[in-house]
Amino acid sequence: MTTRRRPAAEPLLWLLFSAGGMIAALLVPILLFLFGVAFPLDLLTPPDHAHLLAVLRNPITRLVLFGLCALALFHWAHRFRYTLYDGLQLKRFSVVIILFCYGGAVVGSIISAYLLLTVG
């Protein structure tokens, strides 16, 4: 039998996808509920600016948020890549799709790192 090419990146990408899926499942629903639904609809009173800034200035918060942003983006990248492959049968464009998805995740991670490092 011929030895098959073992993709070196796939296990790493899958781990990033999985970690992102887990952290997103645990953290995103409450954050999105609060900032996307509850505060805008006045179901709850939004925290004042000083409080949020204080929370954001905490290095632990920034670390957690960076992890969340980067991993969640890689989660999206990996899953969306296969959604395009299977759901729309676009596997023939795999090079473009891979560049778009993982490239997007890398750029997004850099932006989030920058924004979190420069918190006022």
């Binding site: 039998m1 030895t3 098959r4 090419r5 073992r6 993709p7 796939e10 296990p11």
Partner: peptide, 8 residues
Amino acid sequence: EDILSSPE
């Protein structure tokens, strides 16, 4: 491992 971890 080789076959299971392949793209297929």
